[in-house]
């Protein structure tokens, strides 16, 4: 899904530092919010640990659809862990992914921003559409679509703003090429939305408190 699959060296050092800095600011804000809360929500932290492991594992699985793609589960991270813990989750996933060669180290900052957008938008849509969409499956699915689409837009924005070193393509050509990637990604988002919808509906049935929902 939305993840910048370019090697180290694709972005100039300046842009690598800019995206890392922005990502660290976001992580810093998340840590500050967590510390200012005082009381630790151990249940939510445990849930965040589980979704980190699940999302990291799924990140590495290449699905042979449309030539090969992978799922992110970042919208599900946003729905289950929330935006604050979710931002830490995406940092961990991206660092561990870079550690095994999935995306360059220099792109971790940019990829954290892409995935963070997915977490934030999915969380906001899931919580914000409660009255409009009472059904948990479709609400989680639509939140997943919204999150992944936003992540893809951020991905395009970051690549266009940074520029890729050593290529002669015009920004318009790069935009056209990336738009095709977004279209393919969003096709696979259907699988991710179905998966997220089913997981959220199951959790809603057995532990609605984990979703901030009332049972019944």
């Amino acid at each position: 899904m939305a993840h910048i699959h370019l090697e180290d060296g694709a972005f100039s050092l300046t842009w690598v530092l800019v995206w890392w800095l922005l990502a660290l600011v976001c992580i810093g804000i998340a840590l500050w919010i967590l510390r200012s809360k005082g009381r630790k929500d151990t249940g939510r932290i445990t849930l965040a640990a589980f979704v980190t492991a699940a999302a990291f594992a799924l990140f590495q699985v290449n699905i042979p659809l449309f030539g090969g793609v992978h799922l992110n589960l970042t919208p599900l991270v946003g729905i289950l862990a929330g935006p604050v813990l979710g931002s830490l989750v995406v940092l961990v996933i991206n660092i561990l992914s870079a550690a095994i060669g999935h995306g360059g180290w220099g792109l971790v900052g940019a990829n954290v921003l892409v995935n963070l957008a997915e977490v934030l938008v999915a969380f906001a849509v899931f919580r914000g559409s409660r009255t409009f969409l009472p059904d948990l499956f479709s609400r989680a699915g639509i939140a997943t679509f919204a999150g992944l689409f936003t992540g893809n837009l951020i991905m395009i924005g970051i690549i266009l703003v940074s520029g890729v070193q050593g290529v002669t393509q015009s920004p318009e050509q790069v935009l056209a090429g990336l738009s095709l990637i977004v279209a393919v990604n969003m096709g696979v988002a259907v699988i991710e939305a179905l998966l997220s919808g089913l997981i959220v509906r199951y959790i809603g049935n057995v532990r609605p408190d984990l979703l901030g929902e009332q049972k019944g």
């Binding site: 699959h5 694709a10 290449n62 030539g67 050593g166 290529v167 393509q169 090429g177 990637i181 393919v184």
Partner: peptide
């Protein structure tokens, strides 16, 4: 439609084609 335009490519191949690498 997008898949028909790009053909069967892996994730990284698709990125390389899009960015001109």
């Amino acid at each position: 439609l997008a898949f028909q335009a790009t053909g069967p490519q892996g994730i990284e191949e698709r990125f390389h084609a899009a960015t001109g690498l």
